[in-house]
């Protein structure tokens, strides 16, 4: 459905997207992640034919976005990051106009608009001016616009940004409902939303692709896992000293125990780390409640791929070497 090969987009001397390649298969819901300024929206604008690529090949439905721009646009529904909707139209009028613009047959307009408003949950504001509805509704009107022509591909740029938790949940439920019927590229900062609805994630940072795959496969490739130890001691740090771990939190609990969480830097070392820590606990005769290793959160993966990677590159966080770990 989407094929991006070696995409580069420059704005003057600034390279916004730097040799990014990834595919999206029909029916997939793919999360597109990256910090602010990572190049997400620029990539989406190239996909939606708003900006041409500086180099590289971008195809949607097998059509080149530059050569067959109009046909590509006819087959996609796009929700931009800031939903800039024309404020002097009522919600229903706005959707009617967009439907006509996108070639929805006149005889189907009425039912199509009613169905889409129901689907996006904007029926109750159908008679309100778009400029007068709340931000959450405006976002959902934008979603209804993206859906109105029933395009096979939906490109949603930050669909849950600025929404309250209930509205976010509704948008997530809607995306889940559309799964399988549309191919969806879902860009977001809100990691829990992506974790919740996406089959696969593509992470970009500073214009470069950092990861592509399911959360499990990315975590595995990164070789990261989280270790949690709940012990009663004043010096919990000593238990993990010299091991390939990065302490992410150390919190005292009301019952006198401390809760230590650390990221495992070498996935292959998992068994050895658990053995060493449990031996140290036993040898020191420390009371403990928990000692276990679990999959990292998307937040941790995101950190590792973006800011964590930057910190490692600039040397502000030291990763223990194998010798130190041993």
């Amino acid at each position: 459905m989407i094929e991006i090969e070696d995409l580069v987009k420059d704005f003057g001397s600034f390279r916004a997207v730097d040799h990014v390649s990834f595919d999206v298969q029909p029916g997939e819901v793919v999360g597109f992640l990256g910090p602010n300024g990572a190049g997400k929206s620029t990539t989406l604008r190239v996909l939606t034919c708003y900006h041409p690529a500086t180099s590289g090949r971008v195809r949607v439905h097998g059509l080149d976005v530059l050569r067959s721009s109009l046909e590509v646009r006819a087959g996609l529904g796009y929700l931009p990051e800031n939903v800039p909707i024309w404020p002097d139209l009522r919600v229903e009028e706005y959707l009617r106009w967009r439907a006509r613009l996108k070639g929805v047959p006149r005889r189907e307009l009425k039912t199509r608009i009613a169905e889409t408003m129901e689907l996006a949950g904007v029926s109750e504001v159908r008679r309100k001016l778009v400029g007068h509805v709340s931000r959450g509704y405006r976002r959902r009107v934008g979603l209804a616009d993206a859906l109105i022509a029933r395009p096979p591909l939906l490109i949603l740029d930050e669909p849950t940004a600025g929404l309250d938790p209930n509205q976010r949940r509704k948008v997530r439920d809607l995306v889940r409902m559309l799964r399988g019927r549309h191919t969806i590229l879902f860009s977001s900062h809100i990691l829990s939303d992506v974790e919740d609805v996406c089959d696969r994630v593509v992470v970009i940072h500073r214009g470069k692709k950092r990861a592509d795959g399911t959360l499990q496969s990315i975590a595995h490739e990164l070789g990261v896992a989280e270790l949690r130890i709940v012990v009663r001691t004043d010096d919990a740090g000593a238990l993990v000293e010299g091991l390939p771990l990065r302490t992410s939190s150390l919190a005292p609990r009301a019952d006198g125990f401390v809760d230590l969480r650390a990221s495992l830097l070498e996935r292959d070392e998992q068994d050895r780390v658990v053995d060493v820590v449990s031996r140290r606990i036993r040898d020191a005769g420390i009371d403990f409640r928990e000692l276990h290793v679990f999959e990292p959160s998307l937040e941790e993966i995101f950190y590792r791929l973006t800011l964590g990677a930057d910190a490692l590159e600039t040397g502000t966080v030291e990763s223990p070497t194998e010798e130190e770990a041993a």
């Binding site: 029909p26 046909e71 070639g103 689907l119 029933r150 096979p152 019927r181």
Partner: peptide
């Protein structure tokens, strides 16, 4: 619908290719 998730079924996407509408 978005909150109930079941009362309305999402319609199928209309096109697999993209003829100009």
């Amino acid at each position: 619908v978005a909150s109930s998730g079941e009362s309305v079924e999402a319609p199928e996407a209309e096109r697999t290719t993209a003829p100009l509408p």
